[in-house]
């Protein structure tokens, strides 16, 4: 999988091209079934997965994402408070000049999808999205991010 390349000199000595994802439960809801299932599927698909646990604030998520140096942030939220929390999260990332791609999954009413996309969210996953689709989209986002870093 690896081999000597420029990427092997990147910080933390991660093997190159192992996509790294932060799976985070944003807000107060404790519905962690989806987050855990997705986290396991990503791990099984070869991702390096960091799971935050429940009840995270936007500030905590951003801090974890930077500290862990992840390629993509996967937010899970089933409380209905996604607009509020995600807009804060995106604002924090923007203020830091960070463009880590963000995805949002959960009970999201359709009209909110364009609103989330406008904030800069890259993908929105509704209930029933096949794991394979999530894994592939996350992989693409992670690769894109890694590609951007090389430059």
């Amino acid at each position: 999988m690896s081999g000597l390349s420029l990427q092997s000199y990147e910080p933390r000595g991660r093997p190159p091209k192992t996509p790294k994802v932060l799976v985070a439960k944003l807000g107060l809801d404790g519905h962690d079934r989806g987050a855990k299932v997705v986290a396991r599927a990503l791990r099984d698909a070869g991702f390096d997965v960091v799971y935050t646990g429940i009840r995270q604030t936007p500030e905590q998520v951003v801090e974890a994402a930077l500290q862990e140096d992840v390629d993509v942030i996967g937010i899970s939220i089933l409380s209905g408070a996604h607009i509020h929390h995600v807009s804060r999260l995106m604002e924090l990332l923007r203020d830091l000049g960070e463009d880590i791609p963000v995805t949002v999954g959960g009970t999201i009413p359709l009209p909110d999808i364009p609103r989330l996309k406008e904030m800069g969210v890259r993908e929105v996953f509704l209930p029933g999205t096949p794991l394979q689709v999530i894994v592939e989209k996350m992989r693409r986002l992670a690769e894109e991010r890694q590609g951007a870093r090389k430059i």
């Binding site: 807000g27 107060l28 809801d29 604030t57 409380s79 209905g80 408070a81 607009i83 509020h84 804060r88």
Partner: peptide, 22 residues
């Protein structure tokens, strides 16, 4: 709503955005 379920008042910063939603 979630703040109530967790014993958090509506004017607590942690409740912001969650009051009356769920």
């Amino acid at each position: 709503d979630f703040p109530t379920l967790l014993g958090i008042d509506s004017d607590d910063p942690r409740a912001s955005g969650e009051v009356g939603v769920c």
